[in-house]
């Protein structure tokens, strides 16, 4: 029982990281329906920025997180400006061209980091003393509490932002009908840029937190994390903020429960098997709106 509880805690912490990355993913997708493949690399750059700040300027936890968020915001905007916006403007560009451009950006960014840093995995220096709390036989660490707490906070904040601010309303309008929103006076380019900025900032925060939690930062860390986050976003219903969190938590829990059930050989298949099963039953994801296509 204690072991089961412990695995639940492990699963929740891992799921929170997936959820954190999935939040940014789902936002960008919700607005412009673009699978932003470079998102995982922005997350990776966030982790490296945090690492850099801690190593060279002896930054504390908050400085590292905010510094990384600031840097990835700029990076996200640059990627949007260079790799995506020209395609959005072009009459002939289909969504697949944008996808390939995103893949190009992803290859570019991860190779750039290999050149800057080398391919080795680097550990994160200890920023604060870790402590274990024992709850009903399962021990939960300060790191895990931090991860779960930050994810919850960001999810609520983001949901409130999208629901109640003017910018948030404009974003939602844009996601429903870009042309109509533009006609109503929504500056679509600005809104998309803001979406990218917020999404990238979230990825930056996620990168630093994941770096601290896993104690490992590596140039190719974005790929698998990005894929899992994508799966989480789709599982929860892409475009839905609570959905991303639910999807992330479910995938994290499923992986850890798979390990607990002595099926760790098949761990990487779980996330996707669950995803496919859910999609077959409810193609729009758990919390997604289903869109009926009309003639």
């Amino acid at each position: 029982m204690a072991q089961f509880l412990q695995q639940m805690v492990n699963g929740l912490a891992l799921g929170s990281i997936y959820a954190l990355i999935a939040l940014g993913y789902t936002m960008v997708y919700g607005i412009i329906a673009l699978i932003n493949f470079a998102y995982g690399e922005i997350y990776m750059f966030g982790a490296f920025t945090g690492l850099f700040l801690v190593l060279t300027w002896k930054a504390n936890l908050y400085l590292a997180i905010f510094g990384a968020m600031a840097f990835t915001t700029v990076l996200g905007l640059v990627v949007e400006r260079v790799a995506y916006r020209p395609l959005r403007r072009s009459r002939n560009a289909g969504r697949l061209s944008a996808l390939i451009s995103a893949i190009g950006a992803s290859i570019f960014l991860s190779t750039l980091m290999v050149l800057l840093h080398g391919p080795a995995t680097t550990g994160f220096p200890t920023l604060f003393q870790n402590r274990n709390f024992v709850l009903g036989g399962a021990s939960i660490s300060l790191y895990q509490i931090l991860i779960i707490g930050v994810s919850a906070l960001l999810m609520v904040g983001l949901d409130l932002f999208v629901r109640y601010t003017k910018t948030g309303r404009a974003m939602r309008a844009l996601s429903q009908d870009a042309d109509a929103a533009a006609l109503m006076g929504v500056n679509t380019d600005l809104m998309i840029a803001i979406t990218f900025a917020i999404g990238s900032a979230l990825a930056g925060a996620a990168g630093v937190l994941a770096g601290i939690y896993f104690n490992a930062v590596q140039p190719y860390m974005g790929l698998m994390a990005g894929l899992k986050a994508f799966a989480a976003a789709v599982l929860g219903g892409i475009g839905s903020i609570p959905g991303a969190v639910v999807g992330g938590l479910l995938i994290g829990l499923a992986e850890i429960m798979g390990v607990a059930a002595k099926l760790s050989d098949w761990k990487d298949a779980f996330a996707f098997a669950i995803l496919i099963l859910v999609l077959l039953v409810k193609p729009s994801g758990l919390l997604g709106r289903s869109i009926i296509k009309k003639v």
């Binding site: 492990n10 190719y220 860390m221 850890i256 798979g258 760790s264 050989d265």
Partner: peptide, 20 residues
Amino acid sequence: EESIQDGDTDFSGQVTNIKA
């Protein structure tokens, strides 16, 4: 016996099993 994958960073599930 536990298995992991190269490139994994989360080993909490496997270690909990080992600890038991």
